[in-house]
Nucleic acid binder design. Sequence first.
DNA 1: TTGTATGCGTTATCAT
DNA 2: ATGATAACGCATACAA
Lengths: 352, 352
Amino acid sequence: MKPKMTLKKIASELGLSISTVSKALKDDKDISQENRDKVQAFAKFYNYRPNSIALSLKNKKTKTIGVIIPEIVHHFFAKVISGIEEVANSKEYNVIIGVTNESLDKEAINMEMLIDGSIDGFIISLSKETLLKQNYIHLQEIQNRNIPIVMFDRVVDDIVCDKIIVDDREAGQMAVQKLVDIGCKKILLLTTMDYLNIGRLRTEGYKDALDINGIEYNEDLVIKIGELGDSDEEQRSLEDRINKVFDKHPDIDGIFGVNEIYAVTALNVARMRGLNVPDALSVIGFSDGILSKYARPHLTTVSQHGFQIGELAAQTLIDRLEKEEELPFTTQLIKTELIIRDSTRSTPILSK
Amino acid sequence: MKPKMTLKKIASELGLSISTVSKALKDDKDISQENRDKVQAFAKFYNYRPNSIALSLKNKKTKTIGVIIPEIVHHFFAKVISGIEEVANSKEYNVIIGVTNESLDKEAINMEMLIDGSIDGFIISLSKETLLKQNYIHLQEIQNRNIPIVMFDRVVDDIVCDKIIVDDREAGQMAVQKLVDIGCKKILLLTTMDYLNIGRLRTEGYKDALDINGIEYNEDLVIKIGELGDSDEEQRSLEDRINKVFDKHPDIDGIFGVNEIYAVTALNVARMRGLNVPDALSVIGFSDGILSKYARPHLTTVSQHGFQIGELAAQTLIDRLEKEEELPFTTQLIKTELIIRDSTRSTPILSK
DNA sequence: TTGTATGCGTTATCAT
DNA sequence: ATGATAACGCATACAA
């Protein structure tokens, strides 16, 4: 095993001073060619690498980004991390991940753990509990310490910082408009409780689309799901709720689910009821994840461009970190995209 | 904005020396109660937190774990990270993630970035390219520097270190045995190329099960998939290959896919051919991910306990990091579990 | 009871 | 052309 090399060791080994070695390593013209060569060869042989901790201490920069997310076993967040990693790596930044499991406490603890100088800035998507309780003292604490924050997706107005968001309202409208365009008259909405921005905004988009097309909003056709865990029971209860709505409104001809799971669940329920998708019923989901791709029929869905969001978040943070001037805070809106697959009719029903 | 607090500032502010402040903060009996109170109150008010970088430099420990994985948008790896996070957090460790995208170069670069003192140890699952090229110099370099490595899932004999592996061979055998038990006579195997341990071992398990049950191995019934990306074309080509095998062997009554995607793809193909699953054909997959849960019928699958693997990997690494003595290297085998859902018949066909 | 000095590894400023 | 010294923030052995 090779010993860890430090400037000190190289210096004493070569009979030079630490500062000479340091300069020689950077090929400083001050140092004689001979010594430069000697030092560099020695360093290379022993695989010398400057200790990044010492550098961090000296430079007061860690070149590390802290990423706080509610869940990692989740297609969208995983994609975002992917994008962050990509940009961060290309700029020689490391990425520390903290998972909150949708808990306010864990969010606060996770961030606490990192504000002791471990990271230069945060990229965060808030936990459900944080949004529900509207408790942001941990975020304010971060800002007091002048540590930059970039929020994405699950953002909040009370904190002033850079934000990257999906235009959820427009996305919802676009999806429902598509359903209307292909002839749907009675569209079931599967959404979340209102405290989740994403659900609320997509729901508003749903209403917008109905409005524009002169379709009356019917509360019966909206299912708001509180919590949906992995468990089979919760899954089944959602199926039950969908089934009940269908019992009462058998003429539903379109479904919009604000995430993949809702949409795929609806797809399965519809098929169990013997409804032909997409001929009798069209379905659109949200988040272009693995479920949408492998569902049968393949699910038409709104893509959120998670990777791109990650890239942009990292880029925004690093820009702020590295620019001298004070940059103004920005809110960047990422356009969504409707990915047409097989769960929506390709041609409108000809009505007359 | 509160200024960053340091011992130095507290000391000068309170007219004490740095070391007095340092001791007072740890409630050292050496220091007068009066000063202890004063310092602690002051520190609390200004929200003082010892700078972790300075501590790392002093202690030569970063309390940070580097995790290197091939992919993050992947259920199994995400689960493993979850498990690592859980244990790491509870022990006050941070987790830095590096994603290799299955590339040897990125694996080496990612690890290079971290061996400059940023982390205390690695947890890694090797990239496909690394396994294919069998190039481990970057790993040896790590070991030269005496940085502990824990490998999981995609491990390799040439590197001596702690390992956490799934008993893939046994798991494969168990799955196929289940198919045999419920009466399958002709079982199609969807597997990877042999250079991936996981595919090779599961394939061996398949053969084991056939052997034990006196069923002849038939090469026709084995589809080895080289690379399968996300793209629709690749997806379709797999479907084509499966279809061709079915054309030649319409009496296939069981399918074992070494991952979720293969199994779900097979499920879809079977259904397109009008085969009733599970009555005419039973299917078993691998990795208990989201696809298995939402596929119709719900997919019977081998669960790898990714979360548990992550927990164990982190625990093993931290143990080695914190114990004084030299621990012997261990290889821990995680048992898999067959999760019976609806893609397998519940009762054997009565043959006579 | 308090304070001084040293070292962790590096870079930069300022002698020599 | 080379080297001594200080500083980053902290802990600690040792002095006072």
